[in-house]
Amino acid sequence: MGILPRFDGAKPKKGNPKRAGAGKPQVPIGVVVEQAVKKLPLPSPVIRTSPDEDFVQVVHVPTWMWVQHRAWDPVSASAAVDGLKVTATALPRKAVWTMGEGGKVVCKGPGTPYSDKYAPTASSPDCGYTYRRSSHSRAGRSYTVKVTVTWDVQWHGGGQAGQVPGMAMAAERQLVVDEVQAVVVR
């Protein structure tokens, strides 16, 4: 599920609008900025976890979280109207995870995929969560986990530059969280 906020206009540097031709006013730069921003191919994040998101997460065992790293690359798009060209570049700033049991995690990057170089009980170095309660009492016996990646957009063109902050793309999925009971055998 993606979220693309309404464009609220660009905040260009102050100055007189350029004139093209014999007294014909040029298209307002905000119009061209809006077109460039609308063309940005912001990727929808894909939720990944360890333990794998298709399997059960375990209470009191660290869950590693990340979005696919290709969804964290900067993206650019350009638009041109009547000779005025604007290029917009979006840079991901943070990923905010809501974990379904009330917890929230803010990650400054895409997160680190789990690998064998880490101990099985290790917490993620940059984006993880440890569930405290099973999801079995919830509808569907699972928690709805959501990640929202916030992007900041910088644009330039026509001798001007500006920013469009806080664009976002989001995804969600269900995660089953269970408790593991130990049995002591003598």
Rank of each mutant, 00 (worst) to 15 (best):
R93V: 14
V37I: 09
G100Y: 03
I47L: 15
M1Y: 04
F55I: 04
R19E: 10
M169A: 05
A170V: 09
H156C: 01
G83V: 10
T130L: 00
Q57W: 12
V46S: 05
V56A: 13
S135V: 03
V81L: 14
H69K: 15
Q154T: 13
G162K: 02
G21L: 07
V184Y: 11
P25C: 01
E172I: 01
P25N: 01
V149T: 14
D52W: 02
A170I: 02
K146S: 14
V46N: 04
T130W: 05
K117A: 14
Y131D: 03
P113A: 14
A182C: 08
S44K: 13
R133K: 11
M167N: 08
H69L: 11
M167C: 00
I29W: 07
A71L: 05
G30V: 07
T112Y: 05
K104M: 11
R19Y: 03
P43G: 05
M99H: 04
K38T: 04
W72R: 09
T87F: 07
L4Y: 10
K108C: 00
A77C: 09
R70I: 12
P43K: 12
R48S: 06
A22I: 02
A77N: 05
G9R: 04
Q160D: 05
V32F: 08
Y118S: 09
W72P: 09
N16S: 07
G21S: 03
P165K: 05
G21C: 00
V153S: 06
V153D: 03
P5M: 13
P113I: 11
V180A: 14
T89L: 05
Y129H: 08
G100E: 11
K14T: 12
S137H: 06
G30W: 04
A20M: 03
P110A: 15
R6K: 08
K85T: 15
V75Y: 09
P17Q: 08
D52S: 13
S76A: 08
Y129L: 00
Q35D: 15
K146L: 11
P125S: 03
Y131K: 04
S142V: 01
T89Q: 10
Q174M: 13
P5D: 14
A139F: 12
T130N: 06
M1Q: 01
V37F: 06
T148K: 12
